[in-house]
Structure formats: C-alpha cells, structure tokens
C-alpha cells in the first residue's frame, strides 16, 4: 500500500489544481458561485470544465502515445479535418447526423493509423512522423472548406457542444464517458500494461513477446480518434468548421496536460486521471488570468513557465544537481 501511495504522482497535480482554484476563489469574487438558470448550472467552474473538454479528450489519446515513448503532433490538424469533414457531410450534404459522426471518426482513425504506420512499420521518430500530418493535415482541412469558415446548423449535432445533460454542459458528459471508455480499454484489457512496458523498456518488452508495433499502431490510431472527437466538440460548440484556427496549438496544450498530469515524456507509467487534472490546471490558469483583467495572452507566458517548471522537475540532471546540492550542504 505504501508503495502505491508513494508511487502515485497524482497528489502533486491535484494539489496544484486545488491551490490554483483556491487562489482564484480568493482573488475573484464569486469564482465558486454557481447559478441555476432553466435547469442548467452556470459559473466559472462550469466554464472551465466546458472549455477544457477538447484538450481533455485530446490528452486521453496523447497520454497513451506519450506513455509508449512517442508524441503526436498532428492532433490539432486532425481536429481541423474532423470539423471540416463533419461540416461537409452533415452541414452541406445533409448526411444523417450519426452517420456523419461515424464517418468522420473513422476518417480520423485512419489519419491516426497513418501516423502509427510511420512510427511502427517504418520506424520513423514520432516527432518527425507526426509532423508530416501536422503540416499537411491543416492544408487538407482548408482544402475541404475552401479556406472558409463553414457554418452549419444541425440541432442534434449542436447539442454535443452546447447542450446540457444533468445540468452540466454535455461536453462534460462526453469527456467523462470517453475517460471511462479509455480507462476500460487500457486497464481492463492488457493494453495499458503493454503500453507502459514498451515505454519503460522497448527491447525487454519485445523479448517478452509483446507485439510492440501493433501496440504503437493502436495508440496512434486511438489518438487520432480522440482528436476527431475533440474536433467535433469544437465544431459543434460554434456550429462551424474553421479550418484555419480549429485546433491550432491544441497539440501543445494536450502534451502539456499529459506531462503536468505526471506522465513522463520518456514514456512508461501513465495516469489518465492525471492528464485530466493537467488539462483542468491549464484551463484554470487561462480562465483565472482572464478573470484578473490581465490580457488573456499572459496565459501563454504562465503556461511556458509552468511547463518549464514541470519539465525541470522531471529532468534527472536537474534533480541530481538539486539532490547533490542538498547532500553537499
């Protein structure tokens, strides 16, 4: 039991989130205030959850990818593709909404599989392999929408991004359901263990008979699926597909969320809950900065500093230096 508590790195991100929320509560009057209007909750906290939803979805897939020792830079571009495809299918061509959703998501899985193939079968570094789709993907999305913001309205589709369920934004439900699905998929099967094993020691995993390439293929495909869902969520929230801006820099937020959540960039042990907390921390930062009447852009600087702090804490060299100094005194 001790080992479990000790090894659980969740405590730090959780603590950070709580401190952040507390600070907000202190500086922003009514931060924790929640109103109920026509059976729906409103308030800062609700906003944070709603706005964090796309990054939370992305970070679920990203967690698995990073845990294998890889990274997926293409998720932002895949989000743009996903929104564009949905706008074309359901918005423009009037395809039955669930069928449109399904087709869009299948396409995103294919996009992810493409990344996975490059990484596994062709053994190309993940950063490089996913860079290709990152660059070309946004172009493809722009091609699909002819560079314009495609607005479309389908009330059942709009519900995903702006509807509410149990008083909360429906996006929260989407995230919770998908978190549960990911957790079951990774922990109730052996995939989670294979992923951690590969990230920890690829060679030993191969010698133990784990099919390393298949697992890698799967995580990138899954990341593509998560990106597709995030793209749909964003498109549905604004009833439009904006190929130029949808998902821009989201890959970075997702990576940050995963790392802040306690999964090491070098791979190995991962925590889905941690990544969820990470995504919330990032969103809370952004929201709280906005509430302080400071330019929103200040959030970027703060993000950079938070990211650096976390990266340094994870860095062996930094810890050694710090430990050495402590021992020396």
């Amino acid at each position: 039991m001790m080992a479990r508590i000790k090894s659980s790195k969740l405590i730090w991100p959780l603590l950070a989130l709580i401190v952040l929320l507390a600070l907000n509560g202190f500086f922003t009057p009514g931060f924790f205030h929640i109103e109920i209007k026509s059976g729906r909750f409103y308030g800062h906290i609700i906003d944070i959850m709603n706005q964090a939803a796309p990054v939370m979805l992305l970070s679920l897939g990203m967690t698995l990818v990073i845990a294998t020792g890889g990274v997926d830079l293409s998720v932002g571009a895949v989000m743009a593709i996903s929104g564009a495809v949905m706008a074309l299918l359901t918005g423009k061509s009037g395809v039955f909404m669930p069928a449109g959703l399904l087709l869009t998501l299948i396409l995103c899985v294919i996009a992810g599989t493409w990344n996975g193939l490059l990484v596994s079968a062709f053994d190309i570094q993940p950063i490089v392999a996913t860079l290709i789709l990152m660059v070309a993907g946004r172009g493809i999305a722009q091609l699909l929408t002819q560079g314009q913001i495609l607005t479309f309205h389908d009330s059942s589709f709009a519900f995903i991004g702006s509807g509410s369920f149990a008083g909360l934004p429906f996006s929260v439900t989407v995230v919770l359901v998908w978190l549960a699905v990911t957790a079951v998929l990774s922990r109730a099967t052996a995939i989670g263990m294979f992923v951690e094993s590969i990230g920890d020691n690829t060679k030993a995993s191969r010698y133990a008979g784990i099919s390393v390439n298949t697992v890698k293929l799967f995580v990138y495909a899954f990341s593509g699926l998560c990106a597709g869902m995030a793209g749909l969520l964003v498109a549905s929230g604004v009833n439009a597909a904006d190929s130029n801006n949808a998902g821009l820099y989201y890959e970075l937020d997702a990576i940050l969320a995963v790392i802040v959540g306690g999964t090491a960039m070098s791979g190995g042990r991962f925590s889905l809950i941690g990544s969820m907390i990470g995504a919330l921390i990032i969103q809370t930062l952004t929201t709280s900065i906005r509430a302080q009447n400071v330019p929103v852009e200040f959030a970027l600087v703060v993000k950079a500093i938070v990211a650096l702090a976390v990266f340094l804490l994870q860095s062996d060299a930094f810890n050694k230096m710090f430990a050495g100094r402590k021992a020396g005194v």
Binding site: E297, A304, F318, M321
Partner: peptide, 26 residues
Amino acid sequence: LIAWFKLPPFLATLAGMFFARGMGLI
C-alpha cells in the same frame, strides 16, 4: 536548459515558443 538539464529540445523550445508568443501578445 537543453545542454545543462538535458531537457529534450522539443520541450524546451516548446516552452520558449509559448513564452515568446505570450510576451508578444502582451
């Protein structure tokens, strides 16, 4: 950061990117 603390270049410059963009927008 990259040379002394052995941060992966990808991460260190990612932070640098956020920082520079944020400062510019500020």
